[in-house]
């Protein structure tokens, strides 16, 4: 990028009102820049749009050589087929149950632990934190899925709750440290006042600190929701022997395997894929700011 030092009228945008950061940019460059950005936006969106089109196109159209990209006729029946014949209604419920369990348990467990780690100095606490950090570094990966499943089975948890607990073990450590850092940044006046009035540790956490953690909990809820809803590996392994435990994401991949063997029409696979995508896209659009904050907090501070 070459940079002309011509002083021109600074381009106004609503996004950031700091005039000094606004570059002196000549018009052709601005046009070029927008052309590049529009192209980038199209590249990001078109795969999803083509996927949507293909999911409602007739099968012979999407399998033919030059079928065209727009649906010849809009056949929404693929969605009905995925929902009923391919048991996506069941998978949808499973996804909702697992995600809800993960978010609920994560919010309670991580906030409690983060609070205690920030406010108490228990014997062995340093060791515990060290072990948690070490685990983050070693990481739970595809390789630990087998033992996780074996242990869940031994505990009688080869079910949706087991899927949620395994996912929880993978995501909560980061959240614990995020919450601990947040609580350390909170003043203790309110909590002290509650203690003087005879509130115990748990009471102080639950009545005073928990409500004050709302901003950081918004972050962990978003991160937890996204991680759980999109998770593939854990429900995949749990449902190998029990297809009833499939979540939407696993259900779609199972359909894809069927399609590869010619047992399921391809447009139905894409209809299923869109069913798994639409909820999170809608929630993302509604809660955009929280997603962005969640990810910047979660990565840079975590």
């Amino acid at each position: 990028m070459s940079t002309p030092t011509v002083t021109g009228p600074a381009t106004r945008t609503a996004a950031r009102p700091v005039p000094s950061r606004r570059p002196r940019r000549t018009r052709p460059l601005t046009v070029l820049l927008h052309a590049v950005l529009i192209a980038a936006a199209l590249i990001m969106l078109s795969p999803l749009v083509f996927g949507l089109f293909a999911s409602v196109s007739p099968l012979d159209q999407i399998l033919s050589r030059n079928g065209g990209l727009l649906p010849r006729v809009w056949e929404w029946g693929t969605y009905v087929q995925a929902w009923t014949t391919a048991s996506f209604s069941r998978y949808f419920v499973n996804s909702v149950i697992v995600t809800a369990l993960v978010v609920l348990l994560d919010t309670l467990a991580s906030s409690m632990t983060g609070y205690v780690l920030a406010r108490r100095r228990l014997r062995g606490q340093r060791l515990l934190e060290g072990v948690y950090v070490g685990t983050l570094f070693v990481g739970l990966t595809t390789a630990t899925l087998y033992p996780q499943y074996v242990i869940a089975e031994a505990l009688g948890l080869a079910n949706l709750l087991g899927i949620a607990l395994v996912q929880l073990a993978g995501i909560m450590l980061v959240h614990i440290f995020l919450i601990k850092a947040f609580v350390l940044g909170l003043g203790t006046e309110m909590e002290d006042a509650a203690r003087v009035d005879g509130c115990g540790l748990f009471g102080t956490y639950w009545r005073i600190a928990f409500p004050m953690m709302r901003p950081i909990l918004a972050t962990t809820v978003i991160l937890g929701f996204q991680a759980s809803w999109n998770n593939y590996q854990v429900p995949l392994v749990f449902s190998l022997a029990a297809p009833d435990l499939r979540t939407l994401v696993v259900g779609v991949s199972a359909l894809q395997y069927d399609a590869a063997e010619g047992m399921t029409p391809y447009n139905t696979v894409l209809a299923g894929a869109n069913m798994a995508l639409v909820p999170i896209v809608v929630i993302f659009i509604v809660l955009q700011r929280h997603f962005v904050r969640g990810w910047t907090d979660g990565s840079v501070k975590g």
Partner: peptide
């Protein structure tokens, strides 16, 4: 109050890694 995170951690993180 540490238990709600410690129990899932032991069963589904530390134990699997050791395993």
């Amino acid at each position: 109050m540490l238990l709600p995170s410690l129990l899932p951690y032991l069963a589904f993180a530390l134990l699997p890694i050791g395993w």
